[in-house]
Design a protein around this nucleic acid. Sequence first.
DNA 1: CGGGACCTTGATTATCTTCAATGCTAGTGG
DNA 2: CCACTAGCATTGAAGATAATCAAGGTCCCG
Lengths: 251, 251
Amino acid sequence: MPNQPFLSAPATSATVALERALSVHKPLDETGLAAVRACFATSVEMLHGPGVDLTPEFRRSAARLVVRGWIARGAALEDGRRQIVGLHLPGDVMAAPAANEADLSVWTLTDAATICAERFWREAETARAAGQGVGPAWNALRAAERTRLVHQIVRLGRLSAFERTAHLLVELHERQVRVGLAPPGEIALPLTQDVLADILGLSVVHMNRTLQQMRRRGLISYQGGRVVLPDPAALHQAGRRVAPDGQAPSS
Amino acid sequence: MPNQPFLSAPATSATVALERALSVHKPLDETGLAAVRACFATSVEMLHGPGVDLTPEFRRSAARLVVRGWIARGAALEDGRRQIVGLHLPGDVMAAPAANEADLSVWTLTDAATICAERFWREAETARAAGQGVGPAWNALRAAERTRLVHQIVRLGRLSAFERTAHLLVELHERQVRVGLAPPGEIALPLTQDVLADILGLSVVHMNRTLQQMRRRGLISYQGGRVVLPDPAALHQAGRRVAPDGQAPSS
DNA sequence: CGGGACCTTGATTATCTTCAATGCTAGTGG
DNA sequence: CCACTAGCATTGAAGATAATCAAGGTCCCG
């Protein structure tokens, strides 16, 4: 259990995922591309094992780019309950939990690699205020992050366990397909049901049963951290309607 | 039911609440004060009745300052379910729902007055990127808004109805006391239990019973839109622990 | 007085949690 | 190679929490 981060080779291509994410809004030209890369030129990738608290990293840099792996941001209550607020995927720029979010922490869910993004953050924010360069794209990324928070609230507040699950999977699907992390109809999901439960505000047991229900209905199938969505549209529909407790088709 | 907004006198002092909110971080000097006021000098206050959708207003201006009244931002599902994502109080600057938040809407909960804040928004964002003028204060306000979203997620995901209610009340209390909207130990709460239920992801019936429970335990008392908190610390505690179903002390 | 908005109550049902096992698989050390 | 363990998925049973359904009740207002 490597609690101690390792250093890795200086990474010039570590920004590939970020470049893709920014390009979703509008493809970056050569100048923009170079500017983004320059922000990470002197930085060194840091490797983290799974289940590692990233708070120490954030003490040194207030923003980090996810190069590889899945990272969770969430709160842990005194009595052991845990709520994951959002997920960070490769290409995401994570801000350190703010001072008024002292109860929040950020930790790795899988093996992961991150890199300091303070310089990029500053430059992107400036560009945003000016509406120049990566500004609009960066703005779109930040807006998408906020929208995900809002969706999380609606999920937890008003959707049933079944709907929540479908809704989350659809969101992850769109998010991954958009930046090329997964082909259409598939999701990379290297998460235990335990973690999924903490995202969706459910108990592990109920999470398990809900996933079984979705499999029985043929909405999903999965193995080894890879989820297949035979009919994304149907799943999308399931995320916005109350799911009647239908009979299992098998015998 | 005035669905049509009225115009009111040009408002120079409409920014009082905003000035207070900004000053929480660091008192504004004369220059800063003047700069803020200048952003609203030529604007006209707009009056809205309760229960009015503000989407049309946002079509004309992407940001509005709440001068008076309570405003909700939330999503309505096709089948009638409704989840309020956040509340806007006097002094808040509301951004129009983003393009990727098409399912979101903003509506008044009480009589309200708003004013266009596009110019202020632009200037504040510039100041923020530069770290000058109202930049830091504006940054703090925006961070606080994000923190409230996060808290909302934790509430809905992992707190019981009782805890949720306590947690929300504590948050509203701190928020109002900070900007002088309520004296310590009190909260202005001009909301129906129906609306509270839509904030906390509960049914109206259960909302009602939960509030009764809190009253029976002496944690709150209220009448006419004004909640009294005899012991804010106890309420705060109630927001972070599972509430055992104790007996009512009366009789 | 009637109507509407809101609060309250009781009874019933559904959803979800908790508790307690069991099984499976991969990794580990003998 | 095999017992041994740890982490994860799964299952059944029981219980808690919250939703739903269906009435009343109160207050205010036209």
